[in-house]
């Protein structure tokens, strides 16, 4: 089992977990948080000193975000012997395939479709078997889809750790699988409620609005009688926390755990 240390800011390098042999670095949910080349240089030094592997995390993004990423891809292709790019947007995959063939694409967790709604927890025992199986599956068990992913250069796909059991038989055996822990993403938005949140006049200003990266400072805990577990909102994304590993981990072809020392953003 490979363990990876996933961070979005270089100051978290100081918390590096020595059991990890790979660093995930970058922004997963917001193109405004895509790092600069200088940040990647810092991470590169850190990985070289410790003999660590490197994966660049990338978000879903607009064309502006893609332009920023291209600069990073150019730097990484020139400066790392082997580097992965975690892709959470089909367009980003297209750019990699067309222009950066030496970088290894990995299908990120936002691309592995699976319901993560915690309200499924009390429902699962009472709904019918077909639905239960559906909620425990992904589309990764479709042979033609896997063939397509192979053609796109994808050899690894990534999963969140939802509360429902993942059916191991429905996971691909011909693709490597990563599991994110302990924070699973549930939903994300470009109408970020952290953006400008300190100003009273912004109370009803929900849209793609300017921000001062308030997400760096704020984390919100959301609790509701309608939600079986607390939700955590950081920046534009809602997460839940699940500490326990799946019972059937060894049957699931999971060979990588992506550890999140803090809630990513």
């Amino acid at each position: 089992m490979e363990f990876c240390f996933y961070i979005s800011k270089t100051d978290l390098l100081s918390k590096f977990d020595e059991s990890c042999n790979r660093i995930y670095f970058g922004a997963e949910f917001c193109e405004r948080l895509i790092p600069e080349v200088q940040d990647i240089e810092k991470v590169k030094e850190f990985t070289l000193l410790r003999g660590l592997e490197f994966s660049l995390m990338t978000p879903y993004c607009t064309d502006n975000g893609i332009e920023k990423l291209k600069k990073l891809f150019t730097f990484i292709a020139a400066n790392f012997d082997r580097a992965e790019v975690i892709v959470n947007d089909w367009g980003v995959l297209n750019v990699l395939k067309e222009n950066f063939p030496t970088l290894t694409p990995v299908l990120g967790r936002l691309m592995t479709k699976m319901k993560r709604d915690p309200r499924l927890i009390p429902l699962l025992p009472v709904i019918n078997q077909g639905s239960r199986d559906y909620y425990s599956s992904t589309n990764l068990n479709l042979p033609w889809y896997r063939k397509f992913l192979h053609l796109q250069g994808i050899r690894r796909v990534e999963l969140d750790n939802p509360y429902q059991k993942i059916i191991s038989e429905n996971l691909p055996k011909d693709l490597s699988i990563s599991l994110y822990m302990p924070f699973a993403y549930i939903s994300t938005t470009r109408f970020c409620l952290a953006a400008g949140c300190e100003k009273e006049e912004n109370e009803f200003k929900a849209g793609i609005t300017p921000c001062s990266k308030e997400c760096d400072n704020y984390t919100f805990l959301l609790q509701s009688p309608g939600m079986p577990v607390p939700l955590i909102r950081r920046g534009n994304t809602i997460f839940m926390k699940k500490d326990s590993v799946p019972d059937n981990l060894s049957e699931c072809s999971i060979d990588r755990i992506v550890l999140q020392p803090e809630i990513p953003f």
């Binding site: 309200r119 939903s187 949140c197 300190e198 100003k199 912004n202 929900a206 400072n217 919100f220």
Partner: peptide, 30 residues
């Protein structure tokens, strides 16, 4: 799920003025 009533608590890495924190919490419940 996005429209459920939520009790919201805000946690910050750095200290912020209480008014600003309250504004931030209010916005989460929009």
């Amino acid at each position: 799920a996005c429209m459920l009533p939520f009790n919201v608590q805000a946690f910050t890495k750095r200290e912020v003025e209480p008014d600003k924190k309250q504004n931030a919490i209010k916005k989460q419940r929009i």
